[in-house]
Simulated scan of single mutants.
Amino acid sequence: MVNTPEQPLGERGHLPESLQILAEYLELSLDGATSVVMMRHGSDVCTVYVGDPAGLPEDLKKQGAISARLANEMLELTHSGANQMEIDGQAYRFVRSFTQVGDSAAVVFSTT
């Protein structure tokens, strides 16, 4: 299943902050041919990394942190498997999956 909004996100009025942030991280992953990896290390914050989630956990590069609220909204606006959406005029195609990195569960956004 592919997420294809009727109109591009950002042209309907309000673009959710979570999708703006996701687009920024997807751009980083495209630059390095890597994935965006999100891990919740507490109840309020998710840490965001770029890298290969199948590699060594210490090889992931920390990019920042976002609130759990924004991370949850990202998950609500995307779905497992293939996603395709336009955010602020830019088309993004990515696969959202889940994995284990070390002892932590992780959400992975891999560009296609």
Rank of each mutant, 00 (worst) to 15 (best):
T34E: 10
M38K: 08
L75N: 02
V48F: 00
A71Q: 04
K61N: 06
S43L: 13
Q7Y: 15
Y49Q: 06
V36Y: 03
S43C: 08
E76W: 14
G81F: 06
V2M: 10
I21Q: 10
G64D: 03
E58D: 11
T34L: 08
L26M: 07
N3R: 15
M39Q: 04
M85I: 05
G32Q: 12
V50R: 03
Q84T: 09
P57I: 07
Q20A: 10
M74E: 01
G13I: 06
K61M: 09
S29K: 01
L22C: 05
L15N: 02
I87E: 00
V36T: 04
C46L: 05
S29W: 00
A23P: 00
V48I: 05
L70Q: 01
L56R: 15
L28E: 13
G55L: 08
Q84S: 13
E24H: 14
A71G: 04
P16L: 03
V48M: 02
P53V: 01
L9Y: 08
Q90M: 12
G32C: 11
H79Q: 13
S35G: 12
A82G: 11
T34N: 09
E6A: 09
D59F: 13
S29T: 07
R69M: 07
G64L: 03
G13D: 01
Y92I: 03
T47Q: 13
A68Q: 07
M38Q: 04
R69P: 00
L75A: 05
V48C: 00
E58K: 15
G42N: 14
V37D: 01
G51L: 00
L15D: 00
S18L: 06
T34V: 10
S80E: 12
A65S: 11
R12T: 15
E6C: 06
S67T: 08
V2R: 10
K62V: 06
D31S: 13
P16W: 09
R93S: 15
S35P: 09
A33Q: 14
A23T: 06
V50L: 07
A82T: 09
R40H: 05
M38R: 07
V36W: 02
H79V: 09
L19S: 06
N3I: 15
E86W: 07
G42D: 15
M39F: 01
P53N: 00
P5W: 14
S80N: 13
